[in-house]
Simulated assay, not measured.
Amino acid sequence: MHWTTIVLATETAQEGGLFAFDATLPLMALQFVILVAILNAVFYKPLSKALDERDDYIRTTDRSARERLSKAKQLAEQYDKELASTRKQAQETIAAAREDARQIANGQIAEAQQEAIRAKEKAAAEIEQQKQAAMAELEQQVDVLSRQILEKLLGSELVKS
């Protein structure tokens, strides 16, 4: 710095000091108040309004999200209950179908066994009938052969009686 600048600053400080309390102070205060009013109207109020709207939007969205989450949880619980009920019904239906199939199979097996027994009895009866017929035929043949043998041995005149 030069000596002239320091001297000039010293002279200015001695005349009015750092602050001059003349008509400029109220004018500067008035300008400050006007600036604050303009900033408030142009900048702070719209900014405050935007921040309030954003807060309202966030609160509304948060409330809505909480309600949806709660509803989703309730629906999930309801679906889980319905799924458990459906599974239980399906298992009961499967068990009933298995029991029915087992009863049908047992009935068919019993019927097949009865039919096999009837077929066996019928076959045994046919065999017995054929046996009786064969025995009767054999008896006739034995009688005929016995008579022929007797006729040959004794003669035909003695056997006829």
Rank of each mutant, 00 (worst) to 15 (best):
T12R: 15
T12L: 15
Q14D: 13
E15C: 11
E15K: 14
G16W: 12
G17F: 01
G17K: 02
G17C: 01
L18N: 08
F19Y: 10
A20P: 07
F21V: 06
F21W: 10
D22M: 02
A23M: 03
L25I: 05
P26V: 01
P26Q: 07
L27K: 13
L27Q: 12
L27F: 07
M28L: 13
M28Y: 07
A29L: 13
A29T: 08
A29P: 06
Q31C: 04
Q31M: 11
F32P: 02
F32S: 14
F32C: 10
V33P: 04
V33K: 11
V33R: 09
V33C: 04
V33H: 00
I34W: 02
V36R: 07
V36G: 00
V36N: 04
A37Q: 00
I38E: 04
L39I: 06
L39T: 08
N40W: 14
N40F: 13
N40L: 10
N40Q: 10
N40T: 14
A41R: 13
V42Q: 02
F43K: 09
Y44A: 04
K45H: 06
P46E: 01
L47Y: 09
L47F: 14
L47Q: 09
S48I: 15
A50W: 12
A50S: 15
D52I: 08
D52Q: 14
D52R: 13
E53N: 09
E53W: 06
E53Y: 03
R54N: 08
R54W: 06
R54S: 10
D55N: 15
Y57C: 07
Y57P: 04
I58Q: 01
T61P: 04
T61L: 06
D62C: 01
S64F: 01
S64M: 06
A65S: 06
R66C: 01
R66D: 04
R66I: 01
R66A: 05
E67M: 04
E67F: 02
E67G: 02
E67Y: 03
R68H: 08
R68P: 00
K71M: 08
A72N: 05
A72H: 00
A72E: 04
K73Y: 04
K73T: 05
L75N: 03
L75E: 07
A76L: 06
E77V: 08
Q78E: 10
Y79I: 12
D80Q: 09
E82W: 03
E82M: 01
E82V: 00
L83R: 15
L83I: 14
A84W: 03
S85R: 13
T86D: 06
R87K: 14
R87S: 13
K88W: 08
K88Q: 12
K88Y: 10
K88T: 11
Q89M: 13
Q89H: 12
A90C: 05
A90N: 10
E92Y: 05
T93N: 14
T93Q: 15
T93L: 14
T93A: 15
T93V: 13
I94G: 02
A96T: 09
A96L: 12
A97T: 15
A97P: 03
R98G: 03
R98H: 10
R98E: 08
E99S: 11
D100E: 15
R102V: 06
R102M: 11
Q103Y: 08
Q103S: 08
I104E: 15
I104N: 11
I104C: 00
A105H: 00
N106H: 11
I109L: 14
A110M: 06
A110V: 00
A110T: 02
A112Y: 02
Q113H: 07
Q114A: 10
Q114V: 05
